[in-house]
Each structure stands twice: as C-alpha cells, then as structure tokens.
Design a protein around this nucleic acid. Structure first.
Lengths: 137, 137
DNA sequence: CTAATCTCTCTAGTCGCTAGAGGTTCAAGG
DNA sequence: CCTTGAACCTCTAGCGACTAGAGAGATTAG
C-alpha cells in the first residue's frame, strides 16, 4: 500500500495532480487510513502510469477516461480505442505541419533585421505583417 | 471609425477576445460613442493585426505586450525584439522534435493491434506501457 | 417608428493543472 | 510514551487565453 507521496515518486505525477485526477474520476477513490489519508494499491499505480503516459502523448483527459472505460471491452468497442489513437496521431501531424510553417516564418522575421537598428526595426514590422507569410493562417 | 464588430470582421479576432485584449492592456482603450460603444481607428486596427499575427505565431500575451512596448525603441532595446523572436523559434523547434517522437509512438500503438480483438487489446496495453518508447518523456 | 441587429457589462465556465492557507496525521528518534 | 517534523488533509483561488451566456441598452435600415 502506497501513500499519495509514494505514488507521486513512483510515477512522476505531482501530488495535487493525483488528487485532481481522482476528483475528475480518472482514478478511483482509494482506501483511507483511520486518519483519512489515501492508500493506493498496485492497480491504482498501474492506472496512474497509464494516465501519465497518455497525457504525455497529449491525449485530453476526456479521451483518457474513455480509454479507461474500454478496459475489458469487446471487439466492437475496441475500435474506439483505435480511433482515439488514430485521431491523436492526426492531430499531432497537423500540429507538426503548422509549427513547421511558423518556424519558417520566425526565421524570416529573425533574419529581417541583422543588427542594423538605425531604422524602424524590421522584426517589429515583420510581426505585424502577414504579407511575408507563405501560409494560410 | 470602426465598431468592435467591424474590427472583428477585418481581423478575424472575435469580439469578446478584442475586449479581453483591451482589458489586458494589449489594446488601448478606444474612444466611445455617446451611447458608450467602442469606436476604433486605423492605428487600433493595425495593432490588433499585430497581436493576431503574433498570437498565431504562438507568442504568449506577455511577450506580445513587451513587443508592443518596443515600438519606437532604439538599438539596444530592439535586441530584445530579436531575442523574443529567437526564443519563440527555439520553443517551436523543441515542440516539433517532441511531437515527432510522440507521432512515432502513436504509430507503434496504432499498429500494435490490427483488428484482431480476440485478446486484450494491445492498443490499451501500449498506452499503459512505456517500455516500447524510444524516448525520454 | 419599429424591428432587427449590435453592443454593453458582468459573471462563470473551459482545460489541466498549480499554489497557498490552515489544520491533521504519521513515522521515527529520544 | 512523547515530541518533532515531514507528509498529508480539504478548501479556495489563480494561471493563460479565451468562450459563453444573461439581461439591458444603442444603433441602423426600412
């Protein structure tokens, strides 16, 4: 049986965050000591690791809670798990594409004014200006 | 002179967001009609476009407000504008690298279980499992 | 003049936490 | 057994960057 601090050490999830997950229903309410402190078992530890991993993958808590509810589900319902993973992958791909565009533009902005500050700084102009973008944002 | 709705139409920034920017000091308080409605001029329009563009580049409002205060600054202070742009570029590069790692891992997860759902779904296992990651997250 | 559409302020909600106050419990050392 | 100090408890409030809605007043086109 682990205290909340022990859970935190073992998973890297901060103590208040663990309580927050419990409040949101992602972690089941654990047992308590006579003095009202939480005590967790291995099942809870595994679930917290699951949540942490999924969070690191960028899944919103809603998706994670859906995945949790799929534990022990059968064939048809498991397609849902697949599509959550696929959706997240697509979201990430889109974000990568968008960020690459932004990087190109920031490069343009940064090189717009190479230390010659006698005139109005081109960096500031470039920030205000969509004209130099190659994109659709 | 534009109404707040006109500003919104011209910049693509939503009406409540414009008021929010004003409240945060990013937009100066505009003039008002006798009936207390906001009326903006071209300067305000340009500034709103500046904010919008910078936001699209992912700059936090704090950085944007710093950039705004650099308008009309001289050489030394303008280096600050450069470093804001550079920092943001670095942040974005890091995010791209991280997202690419996640994409690889989601690919692994998605392909862990190709429609064969007779056993406990490998997707769910993979979400709970760091072992297959190549990374340090 | 009326009706439709803006616009006003204000409050509260979103997401995923994080920080702090003020109080209680636990575990170890004496 | 008792004390001390760390860890724990609940509760509230705050972050960033908005978004949504209520209820009231302003503007504008016909």
């Amino acid at each position: 049986m682990f205290s909340i601090g022990e859970m935190s050490r073992r998973t890297g999830v901060k103590v208040p965050t663990i309580r927050f997950y419990e409040e949101k229903g992602l972690l089941p309410q654990p047992g308590r000591t006579a003095g009202n402190q939480r005590r967790y078992d291995n099942t809870a530890l595994k679930r917290l690791n699951f949540i942490r991993h999924a969070r690191e993958l960028g899944l919103p808590l809603g998706d994670i809670s859906e995945l949790i509810s799929l534990e022990g589900a059968d064939g048809g319902e498991l397609n849902r798990a697949h599509s959550i993973a696929q959706n997240q992958r697509n979201r990430i791909r889109e974000r990568i594409a968008k960020l690459k565009k932004l990087e190109r533009e920031l490069t343009r902005i940064s090189t717009a004014c190479d230390g010659d500050h006698d005139h109005v700084c081109a960096v500031l102009r470039a920030f205000g200006d969509h004209g130099g973008c190659d994109g659709d944002h």
